[in-house]
């Protein structure tokens, strides 16, 4: 499989995530769109790792494994980020009884 097919798929998923962040107002949906963008980048990292496994890293396969370890760490950070972010959203819902991000502009004053 051509690497460009994987890059194209990752670009599409990433752009859909960006469009979701731009057009939705629900804070939870925005958060989910960010997760979608993280996952498209993960997919791209794994595809590049397998591309290297096909090419330069025949002699030393641990060169190609680095990208997959990176994906593992991205998943770790995403899990920690989701736990804190959802706690913030729940606290915001308890205070203003809404998840609409337009009500958060009171942070300005």
């Amino acid at each position: 499989m051509d690497i460009r097919a994987y890059i194209g798929l990752a670009i599409m998923l990433f752009s859909i995530g960006i469009i979701g962040v731009l057009i939705r107002r629900n804070a939870i949906i925005l958060f989910m769109c960010i997760e979608l963008m993280l996952n498209s980048v993960n997919l791209l990292l794994v595809a590049f790792s397998k591309m290297h496994a096909n090419g330069v890293a025949h002699a030393n396969p641990s060169l190609a494994s680095d990208a997959q370890v990176f994906v593992f760490f991205i998943m770790v950070v995403a899990a920690a980020e989701v736990s804190v972010g959802l706690a913030i959203i729940v606290m915001m819902y308890r205070n203003i009884h809404s998840v609409d991000i337009n009500f958060l502009n009171r942070l300005k004053n």
């Binding site: 670009i11 469009i19 794994v46 496994a53 096909n54 997959q68």
Partner: peptide, 29 residues
């Protein structure tokens, strides 16, 4: 805005070289 970002990235992708991804085998993962 998002669609134009996608268009820019995809058109930049058109000029890249063809490199193959190893599928189904390999012990990297």
């Amino acid at each position: 805005a998002g669609g134009s970002l996608m268009l820019v990235l995809l058109s930049a992708l058109m000029k890249t070289d063809k490199l193959m991804v190893q599928l189904k085998d390999g012990d990297v993962g």
